[in-house]
Design a protein around this nucleic acid. Structure first.
Length: 901
RNA sequence: GCGGACGUGGCGGAAUUGGUAGACGCAAGGGACUUAAAAUCCCUCGGCCUUGGCUAUACGGGUUCGAUUCCCGUCGUCCGCACCA
């Protein structure tokens, strides 16, 4: 077997010549997607088949794929994502729904600014040119999209309404400013996201990243933490995995805050107490130290008085940037000299340490350490020689011998060494401590309080960048932060910007930032931060329901269309995008723009398209080779690769996500140019279950292409004869079997499409085509009677309907040669005949002691007794029984019979 | 470390609430057609022995008339989170 690629025009043409496009074979022409596909695309377009009206009375169905970033070219992942969405859209449309299936562009973001710096092209130009070429590519796929609703998030019309939403959210108290630590790149003079910091250095500048305190804008996502968690239970059409990931991300914990009285503090005369958060108040008698974050106010105060402590705090902050450092970081601490009293025993003094493993932005930034019940605390205690007192003991242990040395015990058990808690379960001890500390007052407030804490933080949206949605506020020396009045929206990005120096172009623009204060009229300045691009993608699904509206949404249209019935995209958005969108829906509800909480009723996360990797050389000299330059042969059952031009041996590497760095990329344009969109669509839907990765292979594409050609050949060759008889199911004879398999397949494929089981639908369609191949040949040869021709015609029409969501162009072409004048894209889905789906005779496997020994064909409605008699009369069963009497005969109706001896 | 998912032929994968393991495709082998190739069509295709069996769903147990499916343990792979008190 030879594998060859195609790269340029010449190769593609060479390929099609080998494939024989345009050649005449027998009575029919070989199917030529390059002629057929644009023709049907044009017809759908002219008939506005996929444009959706908001006032259509039929039941709605909203299918949406995650919109793409306009990088300039689509990749196979897009093909797979959009092929899946298109199957759902076309199928639901055929089933009679008013389907909304829109497309847009997630068009703000850094790559445009990087391109501006590198290629001296304006981000706007770069972005809109990319959109134009990607739109063209998507259109060549034949997707059933309503292009009339298209928008890009960088359109002024879109970010205008985003600013509008921002102002409404601000009014509702969902937006605020605060100081926050950020990753600051001192060379590029910009904030970096965590994932843009590699080993403590900026990914582009390679400069050491600093932790800086900046005033940033935040959305109050934590206001909805509990609701975002609770409502996860209602999302039963989401993958369990995604719900779990969100649950963990939100990270709810139930605990207490406990106030510890300061008894000794040479350096801090004013300090009276330290408040800690704990989820284990039951272990309070195991406490041997308090630990506070290096950013805790008490730590800062201590650092101000001691150079040693200041140095230690600096050291702690540095490890904050690198993930690798965190993993290996040793527990480190420094005694502050402060002593606090145990909440239940004023005479019991506990030291206060600054520790590198305590985070300021979780809980109160201070903890009490119980070494016996927490591994980190134990490591810390062992290092600094602090006491380790076991307080929870497994039920089967002996108190006299139970000890904790290197491994903390975190499980359930009974309380020991804990005075009045001894003998209780940890749960009961928790309750007891909570109620005692709740009642005990210090300075008129309880000593301890129950507190629910979340890991989820508020969403920092400030970005010091140009290519994003400007935050619509004005800073006035007199009035403070003033929102831009709605009548002054949009706050437009200026076009005249430069990227020749680092930093935010908006900051150094000569005029843009200077503006009069909307309140007092005095000279003021605009906010120069723009919004995180995740904001743009958090509400686009709502905008699609009425993209022409002056307000962000038309609440009536939004409520009629939302939630999205089926949302399809990559698992990589399991947390951020989907959580932000869920938050935004709540925020839009609070501001009156939508009426529901949850944006996506059904979520499907599709797998990636992966490909083998090819390389030559070793180590640093290793060179990755693109698939199109590699030829694969099978020699003695082993696949071997050689370089197409030089003939050099190439090593075949692992199968990985298509990436530029490994060069294992297949360009959808090339595939569509040589095989057509239908083949590409069909291939990415076959083979693997949609949630799993699919391996792109040349032979797999060829298999898909063979299918396309086969369907066309079988149907087109028989078409003339098929048109001579009406389309009708058969009721007897050979033709009945054909009608039965067609109707059974129809029923099964329908169920598969309903569950997004595209690969299973493909398998069943193959079976149907295999079953129709001979009858269609017989019909084509003119050797079938009228009843047969009618049955085959009906079966063929069913087949064409079944393939139409996946290979719509081929299906339209077949539909036409079968004598239909209407567009298949507008035709209604056929209904299966229940009478043809069930059989009166069924064949059941017969087991003896769980092993299959025979088959029994019997009437479907046969009763137990007659089945038993028929089973025992079978020769093979008699032989297997070997004269023994059956103890029991288990009959599972219409399934299986098991004879127990 | 914590949490989760998965493990079936040479490969991708089927198998309803526990009910014939390997559908369908890919790859491979054989044959027909052809001067030849491509395309197409037909046949074979988990392993072992002789027809008929035996054996087989990572490995070891268990529950059951019956287990790829449920339970326990072991091994392996993948994913998410990561000092969250």
């Amino acid at each position: 077997m030879t594998r060859s690629g195609f790269h340029d025009e010449g190769q593609a043409q060479n390929y099609s010549r080998i494939q024989g496009f345009g050649r005449h074979i027998m009575a029919s022409e070989r199917y030529n997607p390059r002629e057929v596909e644009p023709r049907w695309q044009q017809q759908w377009n002219e008939a506005k088949v996929f444009e959706t009206a908001n006032d259509d009375p039929r039941d709605k169905y909203y299918v949406l794929e995650m919109f793409p970033y306009p990088s300039g070219r689509i990749h196979m992942g897009h093909v797979r994502n959009y092929a899946m969405g298109d199957v759902v859209a076309r199928y639901k449309r055929a089933r009679g729904y008013n389907v909304l299936h829109p497309m847009g562009w997630d068009a703000f973001g850094m790559p445009a600014e990087n391109a501006a710096m590198k290629n001296k092209v304006h981000p706007k130009t770069w972005t809109y040119e990319n959109i134009a070429s990607m739109r063209k590519q998507l259109k060549s796929m034949g997707l059933s999209l309503d292009w009339s609703r298209e928008f890009a998030t960088c359109d002024v019309e879109y970010y205008h309404r985003q600013q509008y939403l921002f102002l409404d959210m601000m009014e509702k108290g969902l937006v605020y400013r605060k100081n926050s630590k950020v990753n600051w790149d001192p060379v590029d003079m910009t904030v970096l996201a965590n994932e843009q910091v590699i080993d403590g250095r900026g990914w582009r500048s390679d400069a050491l990243v600093e932790q800086r305190e900046l005033t940033q804008w935040f959305f109050k996502i934590t206001d909805f933490a509990q609701d975002l968690l609770d409502q996860l239970d209602t999302l039963d059409q989401w993958p369990e995995k995604v719900r779990l990931m969100q649950k963990n991300w939100i990270g709810r914990s139930e605990g207490m805050t406990i106030r510890w009285q300061v008894v000794a503090s040479a350096t801090h005369p004013d300090l009276s107490e330290i408040k800690v958060y704990t989820t284990r108040p039951d272990t309070l008698f195991g406490a041997s130290f308090l630990a506070i974050s290096a950013d805790h106010p008490v730590a800062k105060a201590a650092a101000a008085q001691s150079a040693e402590i200041a140095a230690f705090c600096d050291e702690c902050r540095k490890t904050g940037t690198s993930v690798a450092a965190l993993e290996t970081a040793e527990k480190m601490g420094m005694d502050t000299g402060i002593r606090v009293a145990h909440p239940f025993d004023a005479s019991w003094q506990v030291p206060v340490y600054i520790a590198n493993f305590v985070l300021m932005d979780y809980g109160t930034g201070a903890i009490f350490g119980c070494p016996s019940g927490d591994q980190r605390d134990l490591d810390f205690a062992n290092k600094y020689g602090l006491p380790v007192v076991p307080v929870v003991m497994p039920a089967n242990e002996d108190k006299a011998t139970f000890a904790i040395t290197d491994e903390a015990y975190v499980g359930d058990g009974i309380m020991i060494n804990s005075r009045f808690l001894d003998g209780m379960s940890p749960e009961a001890a928790f309750q007891d401590v909570a109620s005692r500390l709740g009642q005990s007052q210090i300075d008129g407030a309880p000593q301890g309080e129950r507190k629910v804490n979340f890991r989820l933080r508020d969403w920092g949206i400030s970005r010091q960048r140009y290519w994003g949605c400007p935050i619509p506020v004005i800073h006035c020396e007199v009035c403070g932060v003033v929102p831009v009045p709605k009548k002054d929206l949009p706050v437009k990005l200026p076009d005249d910007v430069t990227f020749d120096v680092p930093g935010n172009p908006l900051d150094r623009h000569p005029t843009w930032r200077h503006v009069g204060c909307p309140q007092c009229g005095k000279a003021a300045r605009r906010e120069t931060d723009t919004m995180d691009t995740f904001v743009d993608s958090s509400w686009y699904y709502a905008r699609f329901t009425a993209p022409w509206e002056d307000a962000p949404t038309d609440p009536r249209a939004a409520d009629a269309w939302l939630p999205v019935d089926q949302y399809i995209g990559g698992i990589e958005h399991a947390i951020l995008h989907l959580l932000y969108s869920r938050f935004f829906t709540r925020a839009m509800r609070a501001t009156g723009h939508v009426g529901m909480d949850e944006p996506f009723k059904g979520l499907f996360t599709q797998g990636m398209v992966v490909h083998e990797t090819y390389s030559r050389g070793e180590g640093h000299g290793r060179e990755w080779i693109e698939p199109i330059f590699v030829k694969i042969d099978e020699i003695d059952g082993k696949r071997q690769a050689t370089h197409l031009e030089s003939g050099e041996p190439i090593s075949i590497g692992s199968i990985e996500k298509m990436s530029k760095s490994k060069k294992n990329v297949v360009d959808p344009d090339d595939i569509i140019a040589s095989y057509g969109a239908d083949t590409a669509r069909f291939f990415v839907l076959s083979d693997s279950p949609p949630e799993r990765d699919v391996i792109w292979s040349e032979s797999g594409v060829e298999g898909a292409h063979r299918f396309v050609q086969r369907v066309w050949r079988l149907i087109s060759e028989a078409a003339d004869v098929l048109q001579s008889a009406p389309s009708r199911a058969a009721s007897e004879g050979e033709a009945l079997a054909i009608s039965q398999i067609a109707h059974r397949t129809l029923k099964q494929v329908q169920a598969d499409y309903d569950r997004l089981g595209f690969n299973k639908a493909v398998a069943r369609i193959y079976e149907l085509v295999n079953a129709l191949a001979q009858p269609l040949a017989t019909v084509a040869a003119g050797k079938a009677d009228t009843a047969m021709v009618s049955a085959v015609r009906e079966a063929s029409e069913i087949l064409v309907h079944l393939i139409s969501p996946m290979t719509p162009h081929l299906a339209e072409e077949c539909w036409r040669v079968l004598g239909n004048d209407d567009l298949l894209a507008q035709a209604i889905w056929p209904a299966f005949d229940e009478g043809l789906v069930v059989d009166n005779q069924i064949t059941m496997p017969i087991q003896v002691n769980g092993k299959k020994r025979a088959d029994l064909t019997i009437a479907r409605d046969a009763d137990q007794t007659s089945i038993e008699q028929a089973v025992l009369a079978l020769e093979s069963i008699k032989a297997a029984l070997d004269g023994k009497t059956p103890k029991k005969i288990i009959i599972v109706p219409q399934r299986i019979v098991n004879v127990v001896v």
